[in-house]
Design a protein around this nucleic acid. Structure first.
Length: 219
DNA sequence: CACCAGGCAAGTA
DNA sequence: TACTTGCATGGT
């Protein structure tokens, strides 16, 4: 009843975004391991800068577990300088790799094949991996349906009055997962489309003029 | 020049 | 539990 309206809202928003922008085919990465690297590097950072860091890693043969385990943190940090917070992020990358090496024998596939709840819980216990990074990894590296919430998700939905502004990450995630079918492809596109819409129309201060979600007549 | 980006953790009260 | 602050480069 109320649930039906909830579902309608979520699917209507998705349809409008998809119609406006087309499929985004996220995550922009070649391998699951690269997804994880990118998910850490993009924390509070423009993707453009992350690309520079990823390119530097690729050129140095560092987009794999073993090389990252071997390189000292102090050597890694300057390579990812462009992505900002580079000392913090070098530490986070090393920490994840060491976890994978020590607890999974370096078996990334095995790690990602766990059931969704276990995987998410383990990720959340790691230094430097919070809810958004964890869900990004679960969804885009492990292909499991955990909805990714980010600042744009929160901003777009609260500004339209669709959710209270003060909802927590978990509450907002529940809002989506409760009203959408548990579909990996849908979750991937939905999050990517929200980021796209956010980039174009939903900045911190300025209004969302021209946003396809804005109350307007159907054409 | 000021503001911001696909967050997170640690410190304080 | 609920704020606050540090982390940092590069684009607009």
């Amino acid at each position: 009843m109320r649930q039906a309206e909830h579902q309608n809202l979520l699917t209507a928003v998705f349809d409008k975004l998809l119609q406006a922008f087309g499929p985004q085919y996220w995550w922009p990465a070649e391998t699951p391991f690269e997804v994880i690297i990118g998910a850490i590097l993009t924390q509070n950072t423009a993707w453009k800068n992350v690309e520079k860091a990823i390119t530097a890693l690729r050129e140095n043969g560092l987009l794999a577990l073993d090389p990252l385990l071997r390189i000292p943190e102090a050597k890694l940090a300057p390579l990812i300088r462009a992505s900002g917070y580079y000392n913090q992020k070098a530490r986070k990358l090393k920490h994840f790799c060491e976890y994978l090496g020590n607890h999974w024998g370096g078996d990334l596939d095995g790690f990602l094949e766990q059931d969704m709840a276990s995987l998410r819980d383990q990720l959340l216990r790691l230094r430097g991996i919070g809810p958004e990074t964890a869900d990004s990894i679960v969804l885009y590296a492990a292909d499991k349906p955990s909805f990714v919430v980010d600042t744009y998700t929160h901003r777009i939905f609260s500004r339209h009055g669709w959710v209270p502004e003060e909802l927590s990450y978990d509450e907002l995630q529940t809002f989506f997962m409760d009203g959408l079918p548990s579909d990996v492809g849908l979750f991937k596109e939905y999050h990517a489309l929200l980021v796209r819409a956010g980039h174009l129309y939903c900045h911190r201060r300025s209004a969302c003029t021209g946003c396809p979600l804005e109350p307007s007549k159907a054409t």
